Computed example of a mutant assay.
Amino acid sequence: MAIDNSKNRVVGAARSNDVQRGVTIDAVDRIILDELSRNARIPNNALAAAAGIAPSTCLGRVRSLIDRGVIRGFHAEIDPAALGKDLQAMIAVRVQPGARRHLGQLAEQLNDLDEVLNLYFLAGADDYLIHVATSNTDGLRRFVLQHLSANPAVASTETSLIFEHVRPSPRSENSLSPDAPGR
């Protein structure tokens, strides 16, 4: 697994739809996943202690979770404003019916753009939801005009500005337990 630091993307790791079917996650794996979801920088020996296993066993389990596509990667989340990109938006994109066979190619083109933070392929009325960050409204307008409206595969777009992104608080200890309330 390699990290492309220019876009904070994990390269060579399994994508969400690459998770092996029938992957079994036992109680120890759940503890490891819960701890990593709270703090991906936790030292292996501390992670092993939390899971009640030897550090070498823990390292092997983490590697197995990565290989099986359960853990999709480790990354640093960087505030776009710190990089001069103060304006964030979500852009819903509908593709022309005749262009549907080229959805993968369009996704690759969009994902390579510096403004794109995340790209989601959807079911429903829209085909993609694109999370972008630009320096200002002129940059957002330019992005939409040059990369979406000018693309013959794109039928329509709808842009929503993001005022604030609130992250959920770290999960409780029982959140990954199949016996947790509400499951």
Rank of each mutant, 00 (worst) to 15 (best):
A2S: 14
I3L: 12
I3H: 05
D4Y: 10
S6K: 11
N8C: 09
V10Q: 08
V10N: 08
G12A: 06
G12W: 03
A13C: 10
A14P: 08
A14C: 11
A14E: 02
A14N: 08
S16E: 14
N17C: 09
V19R: 07
Q20H: 13
R30W: 01
I31P: 06
L33A: 02
R38K: 09
N39K: 05
A40H: 09
R41T: 12
N45G: 00
N45V: 15
A49G: 03
T57F: 09
T57C: 07
T57M: 12
C58A: 06
L59T: 12
I66P: 02
D67V: 05
R68V: 04
A76G: 12
A76C: 08
E77F: 09
D79P: 09
D79Q: 05
P80S: 04
A82P: 00
L83A: 13
L83E: 11
G84A: 02
G84K: 03
K85R: 15
K85Y: 07
D86N: 14
D86R: 13
Q88G: 04
A89R: 02
V93S: 08
R94E: 04
V95Q: 01
R101F: 10
H102T: 02
H102D: 04
G104Q: 04
A107I: 01
E108K: 13
L110T: 01
N111G: 15
D112H: 12
D112R: 15
D112I: 00
D112C: 02
D114W: 10
D114L: 11
E115S: 06
L119N: 07
L122Q: 10
A123V: 13
D126H: 09
D127Y: 04
Y128R: 08
Y128N: 06
I130P: 03
T137D: 14
D138F: 12
G139I: 08
R142D: 14
L145D: 15
Q146E: 15
H147E: 09
H147K: 02
A153F: 07
A155E: 04
A155N: 07
E158C: 11
F163G: 14
E164C: 11
R167Y: 11
P170L: 01
R171T: 13
R171L: 15
E173W: 11
N174K: 11
D179T: 14
